[in-house]
């Protein structure tokens, strides 16, 4: 499998980051960084990572199914993650979730037909003091209201319009 030069560099660094014989430690970081570029964990990637760290593909498979951020199906170009855990719930996170779901017409872990947005109701993302909070891909947005969310989504749409 051919990886981008950026990913090759990341993988090379990871393989030297752990004690000798402990290259398996690089598995989760490798999968995460590669998923960022590929959009999903493909079977080819599973085999490539397994080969590089000296595991079987099954061992990689076993690990990746445990972690909620690793996924074998592609998400939207913009993955909208809305926290509804306690601090966010108290400040309107559940209503924000409903609003987003209605607006994008997709539910939990669904991808819109055009592949632009996907949606997920997430557990605490570590922004409790600035709730309700969301993440779009890795970007945090604090004190989010339905109106602010609408503007954010519209902004992403127009920024990507050809």
């Amino acid at each position: 499998m051919t990886l981008s030069p950026h990913l090759e560099a990341k993988f090379a660094k990871l393989l030297t980051s752990y004690p000798p014989g402990r290259q398996r430690s690089a598995m989760i970081p490798m999968l995460m960084f590669a998923q960022d570029e590929l959009g999903q964990v493909t079977q080819e990637l599973v085999e490539e990572v397994a080969r590089r760290i000296g595991c079987t593909p099954l061992q990689v498979e076993e690990v990746l199914t445990y972690y909620s951020m690793l996924h074998k199906k592609p998400l939207g170009k913009y993955h909208v993650q809305i926290c509804t855990n306690i601090s966010c719930m108290l400040t309107g996170g559940a209503e924000l979730w409903e609003h987003a779901s209605g607006k994008l017409r997709i539910g939990h872990r669904e991808v819109a037909a055009d592949g632009f947005f996907s949606l997920e109701e997430v557990e605490c993302i570590g922004a409790c003091s600035w709730a309700p909070a969301i993440q779009v891909n890795y970007d945090f947005h604090h004190h989010v209201t339905p109106e602010k969310l609408d503007r954010l989504l519209a902004g992403l749409r127009s920024a990507n319009a050809v």
């Binding site: 398996r24 989760i28 995460m32 690990v63 990746l64 972690y67 951020m69």
Partner: peptide, 23 residues
């Protein structure tokens, strides 16, 4: 070292398992 979404990995021994490339 990056995690990949699991509250349980904040528990010290689970964190060590995760650091070693396991569930």
């Amino acid at each position: 070292h990056t995690g990949a979404g699991a509250y349980e990995c904040g528990e010290e021994s689970a964190l060590l398992e995760s650091l070693e490339g396991k569930r």
